[in-house]
């Protein structure tokens, strides 16, 4: 039997599958893992697009609190105008706009704001992808932090984040990954994230995950147009504003997406309008890929299978030099999802 490259890979894959099956059946801790859930004392933000006036106080407070430089995209050097998350901007207010832009929170001829930032996933892909644990999920508060000293600059987190959050600083010789860390340096001093602290409307609200869940429930139960109180800064800061409730869309962004996030969004227009990925599965990518990896490497089965394949190939190859390999085979290029 001659074995060409294609067949070799097929054999390899079959072996892998078998090994994976063994690993899963064989039940040692190497394991299909479930989604990780938010820690008990998790904290987070609730961003309510219907309350947001697009003033960007959050953006400017974030820059001050995190010592980030001005990002001027309109010229003149006066205004901080980031167009997206970047090495210089951890959070950005972006605009959905349609037609005449006459009504807020309306799809047609309307406009609405969205605050982009790290969502602090319950089961973060960036943490899973990071080979050196520079990205970590704080076990207590659930904040996804970044440690520049550990970072090797591989940018796996940049590629892994399903929301396009972490940004690499390409314009400095000592680059870091730029990403919201929920102002954990302020939290450590008893403060709250700068954006929530400065938001004049309460559109960005800080609280524990549980408090915010209750607040989301409360808002979803409101009759649109009816006067209600909306807390500002934190859920229990006692500094509410009173205004008519907005008309919320069904979806609470971050409630279920890839296992949920600690920063959640409410809005008056569908989330796909904001350029956010919608229709994401509830199972986190991290749990999926880690299950696969751990299965492959469980009991070192995968290397053994690969070695077996190689030996077979070498054995066959040495018997008959049926030379021509067909390297053009498209399926060997590793296009797997």
């Amino acid at each position: 039997m001659t074995i060409d490259r294609r067949n070799f890979l097929r054999a390899g894959l079959a072996g892998t599958a078998a090994a994976a099956a063994c690993a899963t059946l064989g039940a040692p801790p190497a394991e299909a893992r479930e989604n990780k859930t938010v820690p008990e004392q998790a904290v987070g933000l609730l961003y309510d697009s219907t309350l947001c006036i697009g003033c960007k106080a959050c953006q400017s407070a974030c820059k001050t609190a995190n010592n980030l430089p001005l990002e001027d995209n309109i010229g003149g050097g006066l205004w901080d105008t980031p167009l997206d998350l970047s090495g210089k901007s951890y959070t950005v207010i972006k605009l959905y706009a349609d037609g005449k832009m006459e009504h807020k929170d309306q799809v047609k001829d309307g406009f609405a704001f969205i605050k982009r930032q790290c969502l602090h996933c319950a089961d973060p892909s960036c943490v899973s992808a990071c080979p050196v644990q520079a990205m970590r999920k704080d076990p207590k508060l659930g904040i996804v932090t970044y440690n520049a000293d550990a970072c090797i600059g591989c940018r796996y987190c940049v590629a892994a984040c399903p929301y396009g959050v972490p940004q690499f600083q390409y314009d400095t010789p000592t680059p870091r990954i730029a990403k919201c860390q929920l102002c954990h340096h302020l939290l450590a001093k008893g403060g709250i994230p700068a954006c929530a602290g400065h938001c004049p409307t309460g559109a960005t609200l800080f609280g524990t995950y549980e408090q915010l869940s209750a607040e989301i429930e409360r808002r979803k139960a409101m009759t649109p147009g009816e006067i209600n109180q909306f807390p500002r800064r934190t859920v229990d800061a006692g500094d509410p504003q009173e205004r008519p409730a907005g008309q919320y869309t069904e979806q609470v962004y971050g409630a279920k997406e890839l296992g949920g996030t600690q920063v959640r969004y409410l809005a008056g227009v569908p989330f796909d309008k904001f350029g956010l990925p919608t229709g994401l599965p509830e199972r986190s990518y991290a749990s999926r890929s880690e299950t696969l990896q751990h299965s492959l490497y469980g009991h070192l089965a995968a290397p053994a299978v690969v070695l077996a394949g190689l030996v077979t190939a070498a054995w066959n190859g040495s018997k008959s030099h049926a030379g021509d390999e067909h390297d053009e085979d498209q399926h060997d290029g590793g296009r797997h999802d």
Binding site: G54, N73, W79, V92, K94, Y96, F274
Partner: peptide, 19 residues
């Protein structure tokens, strides 16, 4: 001390578009 609604304050063109 209640917050004002923004009347005819359409967001300026310099705002980053979500899409």
């Amino acid at each position: 001390y209640a917050l004002a609604d923004l009347k005819n304050q359409r967001p300026p063109v310099t705002y980053a578009r979500a899409v």
